[in-house]
């Protein structure tokens, strides 16, 4: 099934549509929150002791970032402003994200929402959430 863009000569729209269709075709279980693309880009990883989330939000005052954990879901929200464009200037390329943003990540069940650490360095927000004691691997001594 191929949708047609209202302006058939817009090659880029066609290509991005095609890309989306391809992704949907290959992604076995797409997330209910969509294609998971947008600003900020996010990486999620984990160790037996923690769950680590990296949000790539360059050039932001960390005090203006809103990070919340509620009902097993982590939300990162904020607003990004870019420098004012001086009068009589021409914008040739305009690709960087501007304005307010919000991204949501589902967390695993075994995390401890009270043991969260958040750091902002080099434009990356790193949130580390400890897993609950009970969920951590333990060596059992045999008597």
């Amino acid at each position: 099934m191929m949708h047609r863009s209202p302006f058939p000569r817009d090659l880029y729209a066609e290509l991005s549509h095609l890309q989306r269709e391809m992704q949907q075709a290959f992604d076995v279980s797409p997330s209910i929150r969509g294609m998971a693309r947008g600003f900020p880009a996010m990486n999620v990883g984990g160790t037996p002791r923690s769950v680590d989330i990296y949000a790539f939000v360059p050039g932001i005052d960390p005090a203006t970032l809103d990070v919340q954990i509620e009902k097993g879901v982590l939300t990162v929200a904020g607003e990004r402003r870019v420098a004012d464009i001086p009068e009589k200037a021409t914008v040739h390329i305009d690709e960087r994200a501007v304005g307010s943003f919000r991204r949501v990540v589902t967390l695993p069940d075994d995390i401890d929402p009270n043991a969260v650490e958040a750091k902002y360095r080099d434009g990356v927000l790193h949130i580390s959430i400890a897993r609950k004691e009970a969920a951590q691997p333990r060596r059992i001594t045999i008597q």
């Binding site: 009589k88 390329i93 960087r96 080099d122």
Partner: peptide
């Protein structure tokens, strides 16, 4: 991603390189 802005005296380029 970049922004490129030109004024009478030159060009200003902003690039996002988080991490």
């Amino acid at each position: 991603p970049v922004d490129v802005i030109e004024d009478a005296n030159g060009i200003t380029l902003y690039a996002d390189l988080p991490g």
